[in-house]
Amino acid sequence: MKPIFTKTKGLTDRPFHYCPGCTHGIIHRLIGELLEEMNLIEKTIGVAPVGCSGFCENYFACDMIGAAHGRAVAVATGAKRARPDRFVFTYQGDGDGASIGLAETISAAARGERITSIFVNNAIYGMTGGQMAPTSLIGQKTSTSPYGRDAETMGFPLDLPKILTQVEGAVYVASVSVDSPQGIKEAKKALRRAFQVQLDGLGYSFVSILSTCPTNWGVNPVEALEWLQTKMKPHFALGELKVPTIEGGDAV
């Protein structure tokens, strides 16, 4: 029988520790597949965040570094500047990249570091028990906003990829969603492009991936996908928000 879909060599054989239905696993697989397809496994340094995906260093088949909370891009900057021949990516959640690490993320983009950041946005703090995140939606119930997020006292959700499009050093910014097989294919396409931007040495590339957290949203995995489609997707800018241009303004 002809294999249509088999496990990638870009990931180790260790089973994921994530909750059932958590889309971290899908995003891990997309990165693993790209590392294999682009022949990068042996020359990649990945930087793991703090959060649910803090243990992702166990799953990728490349070299990994565990960074302090929010500082993954800062660690990746050091790794890339010391070894410019290596492919360096960070894997961060919204608590890591948009909350405690907001300054690092924007500063790295402003410096145009030749690294790739993969930013997983599930609108909640997963590992610590479902507290409100900077990306939580207005009206969203979390353990620290039990009556729903109120813009008056808790502010508005942050759309990080949209902010990064304003930063000159960030040359590729995309926002995708892994809510359906089609969305997953688009996410892989965006990741491939982001990886290529780094390999071409163009600058900072950033891919935001809308993701689910069935456990802390308090819904089952299938309902979580529907919540992502109906509630989250309308609130965040989606698609390739910024692509590298050559002289004359044509997309590369």
Binding site: I4, C22, T23, R29
Partner: peptide, 21 residues
């Protein structure tokens, strides 16, 4: 029909898909 949608969305790499030749 071996469309592999199931394997694409499986978050835990539990599925492999094979097509009959």
């Amino acid at each position: 029909i071996a469309c592999a949608f199931c394997a694409l969305i499986c978050p835990d790499l539990a599925l492999e898909v094979y097509r009959e030749e």
